[in-house]
């Protein structure tokens, strides 16, 4: 009996190879998080002994945790892959302009700019179906119309492991090799394969402030402190990683992979609970996706 992790690993490798075979100019979106780390690892496995035949693309909002950026540069070097970093030149500040406009400009718009200038036809992303309701219905090969728009009613049926990869000029395909992975699978695989991840996932004493019931880390001096607000040191870690002003930490003493896995399996709130943009209104993720967000 093949075990569960070998099955999803083999399936993801099959997907990555299929996508590359169909593509003239593929790229892998690399967000530095745990899912990206797993996806990168699978890509390296798929093409070993050759390096993966595509570059990594990081859309840098300018507000990522400093440790993420250090980790990113280290991983690009280890994998022997080209790293492309793009930041929207029209800088928008999450504190000044609000999270909605910030996400729109620094993530969605920036992503479109980077994809357009690179003229990529196949774009790997690390989204999983178990993350969020609108993602449960996402195809593994998701066709995007010109302008990167996602039309949930115009997605192609996906039967067996057969993917229709034919597109017209201007259309692109987003490919999600981790579609069938759960959060628990990701952590078990990281442990099994010894995959490096950003230290922010492990609990440590970090300077935080409490806002709307959530712990926000003071990663640099750009965060405007409210009157009387003083950062305090707490044992915290992150369940998902994004932009530090928009990603809440959770109080935890889990400093090892075993402890993180135990905590994940026992968790009573969903993974994206700490992502502030998911709560910007009903169906907000679905709407962001239609506009081209990953």
């Amino acid at each position: 009996m093949r075990d569960h992790i070998s099955n999803i690993e083999s399936e993801s490798i099959e997907i990555i190879r299929e996508a590359v075979a169909a593509s003239g100019n593929p790229v892998m979106l690399y967000s530095i998080g745990k899912d990206s780390s797993v996806m990168l690892h699978l890509a390296r496995k798929a093409f070993w002994p050759a390096p993966p035949p595509f570059p990594l693309l990081h859309v840098d909002t300018g507000w990522k945790f400093r440790e993420m950026i250090e980790f990113r540069d280290r991983m690009a070097k280890t994998s022997g892959m080209k790293l492309i970093v793009h930041t929207n030149p029209e800088r928008v500040d999450p504190f000044e302009h609000g999270s909605e406009r910030y996400t729109d400009q620094m993530k969605t718009e920036a992503l479109k700019q980077a994809l357009d200038s690179g003229k990529y036809d196949v774009i790997f992303g690390g989204a999983r179906r178990d993350e969020e309701k609108s993602r449960a219905k996402e195809r593994i090969f998701s066709i995007r119309a010109q302008g990167h728009r996602w039309d949930p009613k115009a997605q192609r049926p996906e039967l067996w492991n057969l993917y229709n990869t034919r597109i017209h000029a201007g259309e692109t395909i987003r490919v999600f090799p981790l579609s069938n992975w759960t959060e628990a699978d990701i952590w078990q695989y990281i442990r099994q394969e010894n995959i490096p991840i950003v230290p922010l996932y492990f609990a440590a004493a970090r300077p935080v402030v409490k806002r709307s019931g959530m712990w926000i880390m003071v990663d640099d001096e750009r965060i405007p402190l409210n009157p009387g607000e003083v950062p305090e040191l707490r044992m915290v870690r992150f369940r998902t990683l994004g932009c530090y002003p928009l990603t809440a930490a959770l109080e935890s003493g889990a400093a090892t992979l075993e402890a993180i896995i135990d905590e994940t399996l026992a968790a009573r709130s969903s993974e994206r609970h700490g992502r502030l943009i998911d709560h910007d209104g009903a169906g907000s993720m679905e709407r962001k996706k239609q506009e081209g967000y990953f």
């Binding site: 993602r135 949930p152 009903a282 169906g283």
Partner: peptide, 10 residues
């Protein structure tokens, strides 16, 4: 409603 994912179908 837990599984009916897309807004249109809700």
């Amino acid at each position: 409603l837990l599984v009916d994912g897309l807004q249109a179908e809700r």
